[in-house]
Design a protein around this nucleic acid. Structure first.
Lengths: 221, 221
DNA sequence: CTACGGCACAAACCTACGTATAGCTCGCGC
DNA sequence: GCGCGAGCTATACGTAGGTTTGTGCCGTAG
C-alpha cells in the first residue's frame, strides 16, 4: 500500500502495469517480464483487491486473467467502467471462448491473449495499451482546465457564452436574452478573461470540447 | 446486377444486408431471416464477387463467413479497409479461434458470431451494424459539402483561412503572409461567402471538421 | 492577342467589437 | 444595516471587421 502510494506519485511519464491474477506463479512471471523491459508493476490476486486500491495517476494498463476468484474479469471490466475508470485492459485466458472474447473487445479491451502467452505478444499489447492510456490522460487533462474555468462562470455569463459560441452577434444575443447590447459586450469580455480565451476561435473550440450544445445549428457538423 | 443497381438507387433510408458465404443453404437461410424482418438482401458467394460490385449507397452491413473460397473473411475485411469502404462487418464462423476473433474485432468488426447462430443474435448484430453505418454516412455527408466548398477556395484563400481559424487578427494574418490588412479582409469575405459560413464560429467548426491543422496552438484542445 | 481569373492594394465608409467609467437594483451573509 | 457580488444599463471612445469601387500585374486558355 505504501509502495503503491509512492509509485502513484512518481513522474507522470512513468507508466505502470497492474496485474490481476490469482495464480502466484503467473503473477511472478508477468512481473518479471514487465520489469525486464523497465516497466513498473503492481500485482493483485483478486478483483476486490484492485477495486480497493486507488486508481493510478500515471499512464497504466491492466493485465487481467478472465477467470478470477469471486467475480470474473469481464465483471471487473464492467465494474471499472461503471466507476468511470478507463484504464485499458488486456485479458489473458486459458480456456476462453469466442463469445467471451467478443464481449470483452466490444467493451473496449485492448487485447485478448490465450495461454500460453508469447512474451513479445504481451509486451506489444501492454505497449499499445499504455500508449492509449497516455493519450486519453492527455486529452482529459487538456479539457479539465477548460471545464473548471467554465464552472467559474456565472449563470448569465454561461447564457451569453452559449449564444456567442453559436455565432450570434452581440445584438442578437441581447435580443435573445432580453438584454442591452452593451451588457452582452461586458459579459463577453468577462467570459474571454475568465475562460482565458485569446480569441473567439479559442472560445468556440472550448465550448465544443466541453460538449456545450449550440443554440442554433447553422452548420451541418 | 440490374437488381443490385436498382436497389442501390432506393431511398437512402432503406438499408440492405450484404451476405458473403460460399454455402448456398446458408445464404438462403440468412436471406430468409433478414427478409422476414423487412430488410433488403444481396447475397454473394465469394470475396472476389462482392469486391466487383459497387459499394451500396444506402446504410448497409456485411455478413461474412470467416472461411471463404480464395481469400478469408479477414482478408476481405482488410481489402475493404484499403479500398476505403467502411461498411460494418459481422463475422460468422464454424470453427474460429480467439486470435482470429481478436484480429477481426480490432479491425473494427461489429460482431463475431459462432455457428449455430441464434436468429435473434444475428438480427441484433445486423441492427447495430446498420445503425452504425447510418451514423457514419450521416457524418460523412455532413462534411462532404464543407469539403467540396473548401476545394473551391484558391490557394491564398486557404492560407488566410488557416490563420483566421487559428484566431489571429486580420493584421496578424497580414503580417504572417506579408500582405496588407485590407487584402486579408477581402479574402476573408470571399472565404465566408464561398464556405457559406454565417459566422466566424461556423468557419472555425468547419476547419476543425476538415481536420485542418492550426497554425499556432493557443488552446489546449 | 484578348479575355479571364487569381492576386494584391487603396480610399472611403459602415458596422461590430471591446473597454473604461459610472450608476442602479437585488439578494445574501455577517 | 452594511458590504459585496451578481446583474443590468448608459455614455463615450477606440479598435477590429467587412464591403464597395476602382486599379494594376501576371499567367494561361482560347
Amino acid at each position: 500500500m505504501t509502495d503503491h502510494a509512492k509509485q502513484a506519485q512518481a513522474s507522470a511519464g512513468d507508466p505502470i502495469v497492474l496485474i490481476v491474477d490469482d495464480d502466484p506463479s503467473m503473477r511472478r512471471a508477468l512481473t518479471n517480464l514487465f520489469q525486464s523491459v523497465g516497466l513498473k508493476v503492481e500485482a493483485f490476486s483478486s478483483a476486490a483487491e484492485i477495486m480497493e486500491a486507488k486508481p493510478p495517476a500515471v499512464p497504466s494498463c491492466l493485465v487481467l486473467d478472465i477467470r478470477l476468484p469471486g467475480s470474473s474479469g469481464l465483471d471487473l471490466q464492467a465494474d471499472l467502467a461503471k466507476a468511470n475508470i478507463h484504464t485499458p485492459i488486456i485479458f489473458i485466458t486459458g480456456h476462453g471462448d469466442i463469445p467471451m472474447t467478443v464481449r470483452a473487445m466490444k467493451s473496449g479491451a485492448v487485447d485478448f491473449l490465450t495461454k500460453p502467452v508469447r512474451d513479445q505478444d504481451m509486451l506489444d499489447a501492454v505497449q499499445a495499451a499504455i500508449e492509449r492510456d497516455r493519450k486519453r490522460r492527455d486529452a482529459e487533462k487538456s479539457i479539465s482546465g477548460v471545464r473548471s474555468r467554465f464552472e467559474g462562470l456565472t449563470a448569465r455569463e454561461r447564457d451569453v457564452l452559449v449564444l456567442v459560441a453559436s455565432g450570434l452577434m452581440n445584438k442578437q444575443v441581447a435580443a435573445e436574452l432580453g438584454l442591452a447590447e452593451i451588457t452582452v459586450k461586458i459579459y463577453r469580455g468577462q467570459i474571454m478573461r475568465k475562460m482565458e480565451a485569446k480569441s473567439l476561435a479559442d472560445l468556440v473550440r472550448m465550448t465544443d470540447a466541453l460538449g456545450i450544445p449550440r443554440n442554433r445549428g447553422h452548420l451541418q457538423t
